[in-house]
Design a protein around this nucleic acid. Structure first.
Lengths: 232, 232
DNA sequence: CCAAAAGTGTTGTAGTTACACCCATGG
DNA sequence: CCATGGGTGTAACTACAACACTTTTGG
């Protein structure tokens, strides 16, 4: 077998930031470790990269193992590689972040892994550099959600504008004018009126929308700021 | 020595995308390999991560080795980890991208490494997945330059608005109205008139500006699109 | 019929595009 | 004195923030 000589090989881990939205707050899915090292402490869900496994595949494996979900929004965040970040042995960690509908995961599996949804406001201490990872992921979420129609990934298939509005308020920790927000979102042309209405509401029922998948794919990469607005 | 048992350790490489601007085009600094594997082919500058070296430090080491430059703009891009991306042995590559003033590097060192500036338009074939990396880096550059005052990193300490204008046209491969661009850039308040003028011009001499470092640091992270403009 | 939440209208303002015009310089 | 490129001005348009108002529902 061909090999590069004289080079050190390192452990490569994958850690997953998993965000959810409970209708009020952004939540993070973390596990209380019942294994060593750092048993009893909180950490992100993770694992090691297998020899014959692409990084993305590894991330999907780990996410599936915990949540039972496939086909969720996953994006590579950054790779953390400080020499002493893991006290046991030097480990490079490739961090992914995932957005899921908080009600869709496999409860069994989550319980079996001793995982819990925690709110970002009173997040427990996490092991190693996992808090930095979360901080970084939150910044990325804010960044992307401001520029791309990404928030939907945290909601069910069908959702109402007020739900989306609350979601955005939660992401940015600030109040947004309900009416302007509604227009802004609708003006993207990405939402399709399903004709149905939300039954949960105690007062006036809100219209349920779903994503226009095609337009979503098309428009996903558009953004502008320093550049002039596209005239077409 | 404590170790995680039963886990595979992998080679971890660092590859560097190095962008420059020659006044006309965005250029990429690549090396023509005079070592195995793939001797004689073009590739990005890279190296392996040392056992006792942080990833960022490794990137800076590699960049310094090639260009002789310290304190340049470096940002982690993404980590590439497909199982067969390197035919010799499975290698994870953490990719960084750097922006430098094309005239400031150490010519000696660049020659010694058999490195050359190539234009993106007729870029030679690169080994492995390096072309994907470049593609990705270009997208990131476009993304960031549209939202953050990052273009300056590709220019000398002092520069003129027309230079900056040409730079942005090169980044996006499109024409931008000279006059509106000028106002937009000046309205950021990030440029300071040095009082001096560009001597190179054959006609009217343009004012030389420099960055207001403090404001630059402050404003670096501001951006908006879906969100309302900050009222303060 | 009233409170609470959802949805629609309107207006002033600020930013930006798409221009025209003037200025400085070297040949 | 003229061609070239740099700098400033301006009008029309558009987007959006900040509001008020109407509609629907349950109790």
């Amino acid at each position: 077998m061909n090999q590069y000589p004289h080079s050190t090989r390192l452990l490569v881990a994958i850690d997953c930031i998993i965000f959810g939205f409970d209708g009020d707050e952004i939540k993070l899915l973390v596990i209380k470790r019942n294994f060593e090292p750092e048993r009893g402490k909180w950490s992100l869900m993770g694992g090691f990269v297998n020899q014959e496994e692409d990084l993305e595949v590894g991330a999907e494996r780990i996410l599936y193992e915990l949540t039972g979900l496939n086909n969720i929004y996953v994006e590579q965040l950054l790779t953390f590689g400080k020499v002493n970040r893991d006290p046991v042995e030097r480990t490079i960690s490739v961090v992914f972040f995932a957005l899921i509908n908080i009600h869709s995961h496999d409860e069994e599996s989550v319980r079996a892994h001793n995982a819990h949804w925690v709110s970002l406001k009173n997040m427990p201490q996490l092991i190693f550099d996992h808090e930095k990872m979360v901080q970084n992921a939150l910044e990325r979420l804010r960044y992307k959600a401001a520029l791309h129609p990404i928030g939907f990934e945290l909601l069910p298939e069908t959702f109402t504008i007020p739900q989306l509005h609350k979601l955005y308020e939660a992401i940015y920790g600030m109040q947004l004018d309900r009416r302007n927000f509604s227009r802004k979102i609708l003006s993207t042309g990405l939402l399709v009126d399903t004709g149905e209405k939300n039954e949960n509401s105690a007062t006036k029922k809100a219209v349920l929308y779903r994503l226009d998948k095609e337009k979503y794919e098309d428009k996903f990469h558009s953004f502008w700021y320093f550049m002039p607005e596209p005239s077409a």
